[in-house]
């Protein structure tokens, strides 16, 4: 017997509710200097290119750029917002492309590409697109509760 769920825990999607081809609702992330810098510091990434515009420009970039860990955090939140609080992220495989610069907006989209009934694993193909093109593409694997 499992304990009754707390009232504050919203439901989690079950494996039977998810089908190949399902699309997640798009999430638009406004990229601001605050998001880039706060994200770098929340992930303890003190690399100067993520918080010091002068340093970024000396390296051929127009402005500070979002660090990889912030992108991971946003992608992870994007998929678990959709899947529910008890979805377990098993793998985050992300390819980084165009930088996320302040002033831009990144649109996160995702599609269910595979549902492995045995392992209860759902594979999502994700993309984060900004004015320059693809900031991030990749695959996220989630483990969901079985059943419907």
């Amino acid at each position: 017997m499992t304990a009754p769920p707390a009232t504050r825990l919203p439901p989690t999607r079950r494996l039977g509710d998810v089908h190949v081809g399902d699309e997640l609702p798009e999430l638009a992330i406004e990229v601001t200097p605050t998001l880039v810098i706060a994200g770098a510091f929340a992930s303890r990434d003190l690399t100067r290119v993520h918080h010091d515009k002068t340093d970024a420009q000396a390296r051929g970039l127009q402005d500070v750029i979002m660090n990889t860990l912030t992108t991971n955090g946003l992608v992870s939140r994007f998929v678990t917002d959709w899947a529910g609080p008890e979805a377990v992220v098993r793998r985050l495989h992300l390819k980084l492309g165009a930088p996320n610069l302040p002033g831009d907006t990144m649109k996160l989209t995702a599609t269910v590409r595979a549902v492995d009934e045995g392992g209860a694993v759902v594979s999502l193909e994700i993309a984060g697109t900004n004015a320059w093109g693809k900031h991030v593409t990749g695959t996220v694997e989630l483990v969901l509760p079985k059943g419907v």
Binding site: A3, P4, P5, A6, R8, L9, P10, L35, A38, G39, F41, A42, S43, R44, T70, G73, L74, S76, R77, T80, D81, P85, E86, V88, P145
Partner: peptide
């Protein structure tokens, strides 16, 4: 650190911050 991270990412999943909800979750 979890609180700072969730605030920046806009992640409101209760299993990261709400002790009671987390206790009753699969975690």
């Amino acid at each position: 650190m979890i609180r700072h991270w969730c605030a920046v990412m806009g992640d409101s999943n209760p299993v990261y911050q709400d002790a009671e909800a987390a206790k009753n979750s699969i975690h």
